[in-house]
């Protein structure tokens, strides 16, 4: 518990940073922010979860103020695939991007990139 709360705070802060980075640089913002985090902290742990949380929170906000379910259904119909797959893709993409960029960032710094130096 003593380690869990700071970790949660870290993830939350990272998620906020990810939202800001996305607003500024789009999807590249996630890559840059995660790489910077990895290079600065030497760790990749938590950054993937933060990226997922960041983009998921934006989706939730979108659903609150707009007809997101209808959009999911329409896009699914256009793509000829279940709409939820697009939502999953929207969450998996930043996760993969953030994790890999943070690991690379940590390696560049000279860390082990496994979250435990």
């Amino acid at each position: 518990m003593r380690r869990f709360v700071p970790m949660l705070s870290e993830v939350a802060l990272l998620a906020i940073a990810m939202v800001a980075a996305t607003a500024v640089g789009g999807w590249w913002g996630v890559l840059v922010a995660a790489f910077a985090w990895g290079a600065w902290s030497g760790r990749a742990g938590g950054v993937a979860i933060a990226a997922v949380c960041a983009w998921a929170s934006v989706l939730v906000w979108t659903a609150v103020i707009g007809p997101l379910p209808a959009l999911v259904a329409d896009l699914g119909s256009i793509a000829g695939a279940p709409g939820w797959l697009l939502v999953v893709a929207t969450l998996v993409f930043p996760m993969a991007l953030a994790w890999s960029a943070a690991v690379v960032g940590a390696v560049v710094r000279g860390g082990t990139a496994n979250g435990r130096e």
């Binding site: 939202v19 996305t22 607003a23 789009g26 999807w27 590249w28 890559l31 983009w55 934006v58 989706l59 979108t62 659903a63 103020i65 707009g66 007809p67 997101l68 209808a70 959009l71 896009l75 697009l86 893709a89 929207t90 993409f93 993969a96 991007l97 890999s100």
Partner: peptide, 24 residues
Amino acid sequence: SVAAGSMRLGPALDPLNGIWAVAR
């Protein structure tokens, strides 16, 4: 990821500026 993102997937899935923004 970068390759996929560069092939329109990144801008499209970006929840702030991509296709999801249409709902807002």
